[in-house]
C-alpha cells in the first residue's frame, strides 16, 4: 500500500510540474494581450482551466474590450468538458452539500485523469486531491513567472510570442483529432473562423465555428467501408 501511495504522489507531482511549464506560456502570452498582472493572476486563480483561459486571452488579444462578451462565451464553452469530468468524479469523491464546492474547483483534465487511472477508491481520491493541489500551485506560480518574463520581453512579435499562442492551440488540439468526425469538425471550424474574421467583430467567428460541433456531433459516426 505504501508504495502505491508513493507512486500516486510522484505521478501527481510530475503532472503538476509539467502543467507548470504550460502555465509559463500562458502567463507570457497573457502579458502580450493587454491584461495586467492582477487580471492574469485572477484568471489562473479563479477560472483555473487552461483551455478556457487561453481562449479568453486569445479572443481578448484580437478584439480588446469590445470582444469581452465573446471572450467570456468562448471560455465558457471550452470549459464544458470539466462538467463531464465532474460527473465522473462525483461518485469517487462522494461529497454532499457544500462540500462539493471545493473539489469542483480542481476538477480538471489532469486531476481526473490521474484519479481514474489509479486502483482502488483510496488511491483514486488521493490522486485527485494531490494532482489538483499540485496543478493549482504550479499553474499559478508559473502564470506569475510567465507574466514577468513576457512583460520583460516587451516587443512581443519580435520574439514570436504572437505565434506562440497559435502554436499552443495546435498542441492542445492535436491529441483530440483522433476520429474522422473530430478532423472534419476541425477543418470546418478553422475555415469558418478564418473566412468570417474580416466580416465579423473579433471573437464572434470563434463562436460561430462552434456550431460545426453541434451539426456534425448530432449524427453518429459511421465507420466507412475499408476504414479500420
Amino acid at each position: 500500500m505504501r508504495s502505491a501511495k508513493g507512486s500516486v504522489f510522484s505521478v501527481s507531482l510530475g503532472v503538476g510540474l509539467a502543467t507548470g511549464l504550460y502555465g509559463i506560456s500562458f502567463g507570457a502570452i497573457a502579458a502580450t494581450s493587454h491584461l495586467d498582472i492582477w487580471q492574469t493572476m485572477a484568471l489562473s486563480l479563479l477560472m483555473f482551466s487552461g483551455g478556457s483561459q487561453f481562449a479568453f486571452i486569445g479572443v481578448f488579444a484580437t478584439g480588446g474590450t469590445a470582444s469581452l462578451g465573446a471572450a467570456v462565451a468562448s471560455a465558457w464553452l471550452l470549459g464544458v468538458r470539466n462538467g463531464f469530468y465532474a460527473v465522473r468524479m462525483a461518485p469517487i469523491l462522494n461529497k454532499v452539500g457544500l462540500a462539493k464546492l471545493i473539489p469542483a474547483m480542481v476538477t480538471i483534465d489532469e486531476s481526473t485523469l490521474v484519479s481514474i487511472s489509479q486502483e482502488g477508491i483510496k488511491n483514486q481520491r488521493l490522486g485527485f486531491w494531490l494532482t489538483g493541489g499540485f496543478v493549482y500551485l504550479f499553474w499559478n506560480a508559473a502564470t506569475l513567472l510567465g507574466f514577468i518574463l513576457g512583460n520583460a520581453i516587451g516587443d512581443v512579435s519580435k520574439f514570436g510570442l504572437d505565434a506562440a499562442a497559435a502554436a499552443a492551440f495546435v498542441a492542445l488540439i492535436w491529441a483530440r483529432l483522433d476520429t474522422f468526425q473530430a478532423r472534419l469538425v476541425a477543418l470546418i471550424a478553422i475555415s469558418l473562423a478564418v473566412a468570417l474574421t474580416p466580416a465579423l467583430p473579433a471573437g464572434i467567428p470563434v463562436l460561430v465555428a462552434g456550431i460545426s460541433a453541434v451539426v456534425i456531433g448530432w449524427f453518429e459516426a459511421r465507420p466507412k467501408a475499408g476504414e479500420r
Binding site: G58, L77, R176, V185, V206, A213
Partner: peptide, 10 residues
C-alpha cells in the same frame, strides 16, 4: 467536438 471546434477556430 465543441472543444475541437473552438480550439481549431482559435
Amino acid at each position: 467536438l465543441m472543444t475541437v471546434a473552438l480550439l481549431a477556430a482559435l
